[in-house]
Measured scan of single mutants.
Amino acid sequence: SASLEDVKTAVLGLLVILQTKLYTLPASHATRVYEMLVSHIQLHYKHSYTLPIASSIRLQAFDFLLLLRADSLHRLGLPNKDGVVRFSPYCVCDYMEPERGSEKKTSGPLSPPTGPPGPAPAGPAVRLGSVPYSLLFRVLLQCLKQESDWKVLKLVLGRLPESLRYKVLIFTSPCSVDQLCSALCSMLSGPKTLERLRGAPEGF
């Protein structure tokens, strides 16, 4: 439990870093931090981490990651405290083949985003970082199938509809809506759902 406290501190630090690096160059920093966060949550489900502190780590990670939004130009952003989304000039939600690297070039400044813009690109060529939603999407499927803490599952179920409104997140990387529907149906009809959940409301 003591070591998990250190892990929790590290994860919180990564969330803060991602919130900053999403809007700064090099964009590969945001890509790497995002991948680290998603990989860490995957390990929770792989090794069945069920301690309360592990659940709190997942809760905080999902609470942040499910706020990711994308505009029509595929640029990622996060809402501010007033709910207004600021889109990044440097990070996009497109999935890119590994051989192309985590970044790609664009020939010049991008068109203005639909929300308040981030800082304008400084040079004639900007390297865009790929932060594909499919990585998070796979972890969300694991959550629906394996999550043991009701608070975490409730958060994910509550945030998913709003995330799905931003269709560009889903359609720019390999996210299977069929698998999502299947996971939701299995969660509702499967007898093991109630068996594994802690803290579920009576009558769920």
Results as ranks from 00 to 15, higher is better:
E5V: 08
V7D: 01
K8L: 08
K8G: 09
K8W: 05
T9W: 04
T9C: 11
A10V: 02
L14C: 09
I17P: 01
I17C: 06
I17G: 01
L18D: 01
Q19F: 04
Q19P: 05
L22P: 01
Y23R: 04
T24W: 15
L25V: 10
L25D: 10
A27R: 04
A30Q: 02
A30N: 02
T31S: 12
V33M: 04
Y34G: 02
Y34Q: 02
M36A: 09
M36I: 09
L37N: 00
H40I: 01
H40A: 02
H40R: 00
Q42H: 12
L43W: 07
H44V: 00
K46I: 12
L51E: 05
I53N: 02
S55V: 11
S56I: 09
S56C: 11
R58Q: 00
L68W: 05
L68M: 15
R69V: 04
S72Q: 09
L73K: 13
H74D: 03
H74E: 03
L76F: 03
G77T: 04
L78H: 06
L78I: 14
P79C: 06
P79M: 08
K81Y: 11
K81T: 12
G83K: 07
V85A: 07
S88T: 08
S88I: 02
P89G: 06
Y90E: 04
C91Y: 11
C91T: 07
D94P: 04
M96N: 14
E97Y: 11
E97D: 13
E99D: 14
E99I: 14
G101S: 14
G101M: 11
E103L: 15
E103C: 14
K104S: 10
K104V: 15
T106I: 11
G108E: 10
P109F: 12
P109V: 13
T114C: 14
G115L: 12
G115P: 13
P116T: 14
G118H: 14
A125V: 12
A125S: 15
R127P: 12
L128R: 14
L128M: 11
L128P: 14
G129W: 07
G129K: 07
G129S: 10
Y133Q: 03
Y133P: 03
L135Y: 13
L136V: 11
L136E: 01
L136I: 11
F137W: 09
R138S: 14
R138M: 08
V139G: 06
L141D: 02
Q142D: 12
Q142P: 02
L144A: 01
L144Y: 00
E147P: 00
S148I: 11
W150P: 04
K151W: 08
K151V: 14
V156D: 00
V156F: 00
L157D: 00
G158S: 14
R159M: 07
P161N: 10
E162W: 07
E162S: 08
S163R: 07
L164A: 02
R165W: 04
Y166A: 08
Y166V: 06
K167E: 03
K167T: 05
V168W: 05
V168C: 09
V168M: 08
L169P: 04
I170N: 03
I170V: 12
F171G: 08
T172W: 03
S173K: 03
S173V: 05
P174K: 07
S176P: 10
V177L: 14
Q179K: 11
Q179I: 06
L184N: 00
M187P: 01
P191G: 13
K192I: 07
K192T: 14
T193S: 07
L194G: 06
L194T: 09
R196I: 06
L197S: 03
G199P: 06
P201H: 09
E202K: 14
